[in-house]
């Protein structure tokens, strides 16, 4: 598996107090721990177990993921934007790796 690469879609601008839609996608196998390899040995679980979205350091949305989330986890959710600033998205892997992405938004 290539290193997980996040993709995020956030509008570049919004009006003050607007509720915007955010979409995120990350490449990840989400190995469930339920599968076996060719020799019949269980393949150990390795999933992204947590996703968070913060805006200017404050929590906007969070998700605890279980192995029933499909490969290449996708989220669509909303955020209320009152001021210009930075969205920070983080994905936490079972192996401890953290993948992240930052996106600016300008409130006009």
């Amino acid at each position: 598996m290539a290193a997980p690469k996040p993709r995020v879609k956030v509008p570049k601008t919004a009006s003050a107090g607007e509720v915007i839609t955010i979409k995120t996608l990350i490449s990840h196998n989400m190995e469930s721990g339920q599968r076996k390899d060719k020799d019949g040995n269980p393949i150990p679980r390795q999933i992204i177990n947590k996703f968070t979205c913060e805006f200017n350091g404050q929590k906007v949305f969070e998700c605890d993921l279980d192995p029933a989330i499909s490969a290449n986890p996708f989220f669509e959710f909303s955020a209320k934007v009152n001021e210009s600033g930075t969205f920070k998205f983080t994905w936490v892997d079972d192996d401890g790796s953290v993948y992240s992405s930052e996106n600016q938004i300008e409130v006009k």
């Binding site: 915007i20 805006f55 929590k59 906007v60 949305f61 969070e62």
Partner: peptide, 8 residues
């Protein structure tokens, strides 16, 4: 999913 007032 966990929401906050900022979720809108």
């Amino acid at each position: 999913f966990h929401f906050t007032a900022l979720s809108g």
